[in-house]
Simulated assay, not measured.
Amino acid sequence: MAVVHDWSHDVKKYIPSANEAAIAGIVKHLGIALQSRDASFVACEDKTERDRVRDSFLKKKLGLTDADAELEKSIVEICKKMHGDRDKSRVAFYYMLAEKYGKLSLFS
Results as ranks from 00 to 15, higher is better:
residue 51 D to K: 14
residue 16 P to T: 08
residue 106 L to E: 07
residue 16 P to G: 13
residue 99 E to N: 14
residue 5 H to R: 15
residue 23 I to G: 04
residue 56 S to M: 08
residue 21 A to G: 07
residue 9 H to T: 08
residue 57 F to T: 01
residue 71 L to D: 05
residue 37 R to T: 14
residue 48 T to R: 11
residue 40 S to F: 06
residue 66 D to V: 08
residue 100 K to V: 00
residue 39 A to R: 13
residue 72 E to I: 00
residue 59 K to C: 10
residue 88 K to V: 07
residue 95 Y to W: 04
residue 20 E to C: 01
residue 106 L to C: 01
residue 15 I to F: 08
residue 17 S to H: 10
residue 42 V to F: 03
residue 33 A to T: 15
residue 85 D to W: 07
residue 37 R to F: 11
residue 12 K to M: 13
residue 50 R to A: 01
residue 43 A to M: 07
residue 1 M to R: 04
residue 80 K to S: 11
residue 4 V to C: 03
residue 98 A to N: 05
residue 39 A to C: 04
residue 51 D to A: 14
residue 50 R to V: 04
residue 98 A to K: 00
residue 26 I to N: 05
residue 39 A to F: 08
residue 39 A to Q: 13
residue 2 A to I: 06
residue 61 K to L: 04
residue 98 A to S: 14
residue 68 D to Q: 05
residue 25 G to R: 03
residue 60 K to R: 14
residue 96 M to H: 01
residue 40 S to G: 10
residue 34 L to V: 02
residue 51 D to G: 08
residue 67 A to D: 12
residue 96 M to G: 02
residue 94 Y to G: 01
residue 32 I to R: 12
residue 30 L to K: 13
residue 79 C to H: 06
residue 95 Y to P: 14
residue 58 L to M: 15
residue 97 L to A: 02
residue 56 S to K: 09
residue 6 D to C: 07
residue 50 R to T: 10
residue 11 V to N: 09
residue 2 A to T: 09
residue 55 D to E: 13
residue 93 F to V: 02
residue 21 A to T: 08
residue 100 K to W: 01
residue 13 K to G: 07
residue 72 E to L: 12
residue 19 N to D: 15
residue 60 K to A: 13
residue 26 I to E: 04
residue 98 A to E: 07
residue 61 K to M: 09
residue 2 A to K: 15
residue 72 E to N: 14
residue 60 K to P: 00
residue 5 H to E: 07
residue 56 S to E: 15
residue 28 K to L: 06
residue 32 I to G: 10
residue 42 V to A: 04
residue 39 A to Y: 09
residue 105 S to I: 02
residue 18 A to W: 04
residue 47 K to W: 03
residue 1 M to W: 06
residue 11 V to M: 09
residue 85 D to S: 12
residue 61 K to Y: 07
residue 49 E to H: 11
residue 75 I to M: 04
residue 34 L to I: 03
residue 79 C to Y: 03
residue 9 H to K: 14
residue 12 K to P: 00
residue 45 E to W: 11
residue 45 E to R: 05
residue 5 H to L: 12
residue 63 G to V: 03
residue 107 F to D: 09
residue 81 K to M: 02
residue 75 I to K: 05
residue 16 P to R: 03
residue 15 I to H: 12
residue 50 R to C: 05
residue 48 T to F: 05
residue 70 E to M: 08
residue 86 R to E: 11
residue 83 H to T: 05
